[in-house]
Amino acid sequence: MAVAANIHPGTQNEAPAGDPAETVLFQMDGNPMPPLADAGYVPVGRNQRLRYARFVARRSPRRGTILLLSGRNETIEKLFETIKDLGAIGFDVVTFDWRGQGGSSRLLRNRNKGYLDSFDTWRDDIEAIFKSVVLPDCHAPYYVLAHSSGALAALYAGPNMLTRASRMVLLSPFVGFGPLPLPPQWVGRIAHWLVALGFGSMRMWGKAKPADRQPFVTNRLTSDAARYARNRKLAEERPDLSLGGPAVAWVAAASRAIARVNSPSHYSQVKTPTLFVIAGSDQVVSAPAGVRLANAMRSAASVTVDGARHELLQEADLFREQALAAVDAFFRED
């Protein structure tokens, strides 16, 4: 059951139910909210909840519903521009904040740490949103559009997706670690050892506080200065919705999930037609790993946006429009 609720800065875990859905989300100049159907919370786990929002298409005929899965440290608000664009080509959109980030329940007392003990949690989040929001309230057919670690979660849940989604598009999928000081296999091993020693909640890398953002010229996420500035302003105005660097347990969980989705015994069970959209200049996740996995999967194919950085939906128009065109074309084939 989904319930509407109000968010107040810094106190979203005690928000009262029954207030207007628009107040669940945060608007600011330069980042207006698309046409909203409803928003609120879905209960999950033990006294936990997911903040979700459902948006309506801006044109007819309506082509179905996209479940939009964000990456680590992304929020519903960061996706407003993309949701507007998807609505303009006929799609309703449902999206949510994963457990452990955004306006959903955090998993540590220290809200700044990006913590996750297993991608089973995010797989269960996907299922909860389907059962509580998508299946009862949204127009079929259903599609999945996922970015980065959201794409990893979609593949992790992939064997169950055939009964849920007609097609999936995975943008800059996190199926292999990007450039790191150590070989990727050692990153997972070290994180696993640290978790076993009781250091799972320790920050693995990155900034301690959400407001600690690097300047545009050194960022690896996007070549678009305006969109980078908008997202930085969002994080500065609502630091309670953002995270610092990932915790050791998050890295260990991601490493296990990456190993699983790259296993033939797993990906052979992913029957949903899937398109991998690879960012050609990705310095956050491994672009070659995405191409290799797409080639290995019978149900998948890949395209590469040459020159694009990791955040394809936040990139310069030259790259972003190519990614959105690939989404539009692939979903039209259904």
Rank of each mutant, 00 (worst) to 15 (best):
F199C: 01
A140I: 03
F174S: 09
A287D: 06
F199K: 00
V56T: 15
P61K: 13
A15Y: 12
P181L: 10
M202C: 10
P9Q: 04
A296E: 12
H266V: 05
E81T: 06
A21E: 13
V42C: 08
P273Q: 13
G188V: 06
P181C: 01
S148N: 13
S118L: 10
F26V: 14
M161N: 13
Y267N: 07
E333L: 15
A254T: 12
E22N: 05
G280D: 13
F80D: 03
E236Y: 03
A4S: 15
L182P: 04
E311R: 02
D317I: 06
S60V: 13
I66V: 15
D212Q: 15
N112M: 00
Y41C: 09
M33E: 08
L243C: 03
P215K: 00
D334N: 13
F177A: 00
V305W: 07
R220W: 04
V217N: 10
F26L: 14
G100T: 03
S265W: 02
D97I: 04
E333G: 12
R238K: 13
L221T: 04
G280M: 14
A249C: 08
G64E: 08
K207F: 02
L275T: 14
R203P: 02
D282N: 09
T163Q: 11
R238I: 02
D117M: 06
P288V: 08
A57M: 05
P239C: 00
D117P: 11
A4W: 08
L180I: 02
L145K: 12
Q214Y: 02
S299V: 06
E74Q: 15
L312N: 03
